[in-house]
């Protein structure tokens, strides 16, 4: 009986470690009518080490995790297998860094609309959990700098 309780308690804490991943200021860059791809940006934080391993969205045929880097004045974009969310430190998905790449868009992303995105988060114990995010579509001209300070 005692051990059963312990197992229950342990599994509960393991569950909460991934459940406590928090998303702040998720946004998607608006597109023009025939544009087939855009990026989603957000801040992820977690009390325990976690990792964003994949994402999906009903608005896009293909969703990937990407990283953009400037290498000697060359812009390089590549797919990454996951984005680490270190405990307490979090992960910033922002222009000039990581983004959730939404490709084969099924419709235009219009400013002000809300885009649902499902994130798959993996805890240190490899346990996976999904997180539903509602990202706001922001103007194509959004720079991503000081976005959190605005309100």
């Amino acid at each position: 009986m005692k051990s059963l309780l312990l197992v229950l308690l342990l599994s509960l804490t393991a569950l909460s470690a991934t459940a406590q991943v928090q998303v702040k200021d998720p946004w998607v860059r608006a597109t023009v009518p025939q544009q087939a791809a855009t990026g989603a940006f957000m801040h992820l934080s977690s009390p325990a080490d976690a990792r964003l391993v994949s994402a999906s969205s009903p608005v896009a045929g293909v969703v990937e995790l990407h990283e953009v880097r400037m290498e000697k004045d060359v812009m390089k974009m590549r797919a990454v297998p996951g984005i680490d969310i270190p405990a307490g430190k979090g992960a910033e998905l922002k222009p000039g860094g990581y983004h959730v790449m939404l490709m084969n868009l099924k419709s235009q992303m219009k400013e002000g609309e809300v885009v649902p995105i499902t994130l798959v988060i993996e805890g240190k114990d490899k346990r996976r959990q999904t997180l539903e995010v509602k990202a706001k579509v922001k103007a194509l001209t959004t720079t991503g700098q000081g976005e959190t300070k605005k309100h």
Partner: peptide, 16 residues
């Protein structure tokens, strides 16, 4: 290129 979610809109926004 327009498939670029990041550097290209930043460059165009800066030009504006």
């Amino acid at each position: 290129f327009t498939h670029c979610p990041d550097v290209c809109p930043t460059a165009l926004t800066r030009a504006k």
